[in-house]
Simulated assay, not measured.
Amino acid sequence: MTIPLNRMVVRKLRMRLKNPFKTSFGTMKDKEFFIIEAMDSQGNKGYGESVAFSIPWYTEETVKTTFHMIEDFFIPILKESVIDHPDDVSDLFHSIRGNNMAKAAVEGAIWDLYAKRKGLSLAEALGGEKKEIDVGISIGIQPTIKGLIHTIEQSLKEGYKRIKLKIKPGEDVHVLQKVRERFPDTPIMADANSAYTLGDMQQLKALDDLNLMMIEQPLGHDDIVDHAKLQNEIDTAICLDESIHSLDDVRKAYELGSCKIINLKIGRVGGLSEARRIHDFCREHGIALWCGGMLEAGVGRAHNIAITTLPQFVLPGDTAGSSKYWERDIVKPEVITEHGVIKIPDKPGIGYEINEEVMDGYTEWVKVYKFD
């Protein structure tokens, strides 16, 4: 069944985070992003959200490059194409190299529209099986260990199933040792955001004594080979994040033994269709998956929830509730975490409505593209 696109709307938003988020890259106070609206000829609307940051510290993409790619390439491609299924979108965009976050924002809106036209939740449209998902929380680098321990205590009281702590050289082993002393049985992982090299081998080996679930992306953001060398030397499971942009990257990492776990981010791999292909490979080969976060607002958070309902997402993801990050989110109801669990909405599409009043308050500008 053809998806008759009638128009697309690109809306630029800026939202202030409740608390600045600090990583080895830097500190973020505001999140700039786009909400993409895809409308069919019957007036049904699907929504996607861009996840690239303002500065290219996670990948090479930025907010500005996202808009450039959407306006100058992806919307023109869609205007000239017939789409029968959202999987077609990734095929249509294949000739454009990279720019996965821009691709995912557009494709996500079409997936939501497709699910609504079918009368299915997005989770059902993707083949998801779960009625609820476990979630953890990601905690940025804190000014003091005392403050960090307090933040962890609060997160555990709220029921989060796993704690992810950002680390960097000089703020790693001694910090994690203090945390482990205070929380001997808590599932804890460390996220290095590519802050180390093989020259830090002894420092990374010291993490083996801390009983961590995993260390995420300790080495180069585009590396698979050195991670295989490191995984061969340490007992702690390596989780790859920034290195994984496609199913082909997953296959290579598996064959080299570069990791035991993968953090799957929809934007980083180019959309839900590629994310589902990666899921299927990981399920076949026994690679544990979890869904990472990019400080999404409600639309992106809803997409993360939907993909996490697939069965190989066996570890708690980063999709915490809206109130952890925003004073007011752009969806209603807001995403709610209860005792570390999010219940999957069963309404068609992403399962959340857009709170137009709140979104308008965050909107900087809007641009409409008509297809007829």
Rank of each mutant, 00 (worst) to 15 (best):
T144D: 09
I163P: 03
K146C: 00
I141H: 05
K157C: 02
A123F: 14
K166D: 11
L148V: 02
I152W: 01
G140E: 05
L156G: 09
L156F: 09
L122G: 12
V135G: 05
R162L: 14
H150N: 07
E129W: 10
K161R: 15
E129D: 11
Y160M: 11
L148G: 01
T151F: 02
K146G: 05
S138F: 01
E132V: 07
A123P: 12
G159I: 07
I152N: 00
I149V: 09
H150Q: 07
G136C: 08
I141A: 05
I137A: 02
K130E: 14
H150Y: 02
G127V: 12
K130T: 09
E153G: 00
Y160H: 11
K164Y: 10
D134Y: 06
G136M: 06
L156S: 07
G136Q: 06
L126F: 06
K164H: 12
Q142K: 11
H150D: 04
P143W: 05
Q142S: 10
I133N: 06
R162H: 13
E153D: 03
G140H: 07
K166E: 14
G147T: 01
A125R: 13
L165S: 08
G127T: 10
G127A: 11
I137R: 01
A125Q: 12
S121L: 14
Q142F: 05
Y160V: 11
E129P: 06
K146S: 09
S121Y: 15
S121C: 15
G140P: 04
A125M: 13
I145P: 00
K161L: 12
A125T: 13
K166M: 12
I149W: 00
K157A: 06
L148M: 10
T144C: 04
I149R: 00
L122I: 13
L120E: 15
Q154K: 06
L148W: 01
S155G: 04
I149T: 02
I133H: 08
E129C: 10
Q154E: 11
K161Q: 15
